[in-house]
C-alpha cells in the first residue's frame, strides 16, 4: 500500500527529515516501524499506550543521534528503532516486575544499542531537570520563557500576546524570569553531579 523504503539514500533522507521535524518523514517512519514494536510490547504484557511511549522515546533517541554529524546509521531505521524499543520495554517490565521470567521475542533482527541508550539517559536526565525547573518558576515566567525559548516566538510577538507595552518591557521581564530559571536549574544540576 505504501512505498517500501529500503535504499540507503531513502533512509538517509528520512533521518534528515526527522532531524528537521518533517511530519511526512515522521509519518513514514511510523508506518514502517511501529507495527512490529507494538506487537512486541503487547506480547510482553504491555498495552498500546506503552508501545506509543517507548516508540516516542526511541524516536527521541534517533532524533538526538540524527542531530549529531558523526552519527551513521549502520542498519535500517526500523531495525534500530525496534532494538531500542525492545531494550526500553524489557528494562521497564524488569523494573516493574510485571512479568514472570523470560520474554517473548519476535523474529525481528536486533542490533546492539546499549551505548546509545546510556548516552540518552544522561541527556534525558538533564532535560528532566530543565523541565522540572520550568515547572517550578510559576506563571507568567513559565509561559513567557517557553514562548521565547521553546516555541521560539519573537520578542514583539510575545510583548503583544502577554500584554506588555513594548518589546523592551517584555525583555526585562524575560530577563528576570531567566535568572530565576537559571538559578533553579543550576542549583539542581550541580547537586546531581
Amino acid at each position: 500500500m505504501h512505498r517500501q523504503v529500503n535504499t540507503f539514500d531513502d533512509e538517509k533522507a528520512l533521518l534528515r527529515g526527522l532531524s528537521t521535524h518533517d511530519p511526512l518523514a515522521i509519518e513514514m517512519i511510523y508506518r514502517q516501524s511501529f507495527g512490529p514494536i507494538q506487537s512486541f510490547v503487547i506480547k510482553n504484557n504491555g498495552f498500546s499506550d506503552d508501545a506509543r511511549d517507548v516508540f516516542q522515546e526511541a524516536m527521541v533517541i534517533l532524533f538526538e543521534n540524527a542531530q549529531s554529524e558523526s552519527f551513521e546509521l549502520t542498519c535500517r531505521i526500523r531495525t534500530y528503532l525496534y532494538s531500542i524499543c525492545r531494550r526500553l520495554w524489557l528494562k521497564k517490565i524488569e523494573r516493574e516486575k510485571r512479568f514472570y521470567t523470560g520474554s517473548f521475542d519476535t523474529l525481528n533482527e536486533i542490533v546492539p544499542v546499549e551505548d546509545d541508550l546510556e548516552m540518552h539517559e544522561k541527556k534525558d536526565a538533564d532535560l528532566q531537570l530543565m523541565d522540572e525547573a520550568l515547572g517550578k518558576i510559576g506563571e507568567p515566567c513559565k509561559s513567557l520563557l517557553e514562548a521565547f525559548y521553546i516555541q521560539k516566538k519573537s520578542m514583539p510577538e510575545i510583548a503583544e500576546s502577554f500584554g506588555y507595552t513594548n518589546a523592551d518591557n517584555a525583555k526585562t521581564q524575560k530577563y528576570k524570569c531567566l535568572m530565576r530559571l537559571k538559578k533553579l536549574f543550576f542549583s539542581r544540576y550541580k547537586n546531581e553531579d
Binding site: H21, I26, M59, F63, L127
Partner: peptide, 23 residues
C-alpha cells in the same frame, strides 16, 4: 550550556507534538 539545554527541550517537545499529530 543553559541555552543548549533549553534548545534541546524545545526540539524534543516540538518533535513530540509532531509525533502526536502523526499518531
Amino acid at each position: 550550556f543553559f541555552l543548549e539545554q533549553l534548545d534541546n527541550l524545545s526540539k524534543i517537545s516540538n518533535l513530540k507534538s509532531v509525533m502526536n499529530s502523526v499518531e
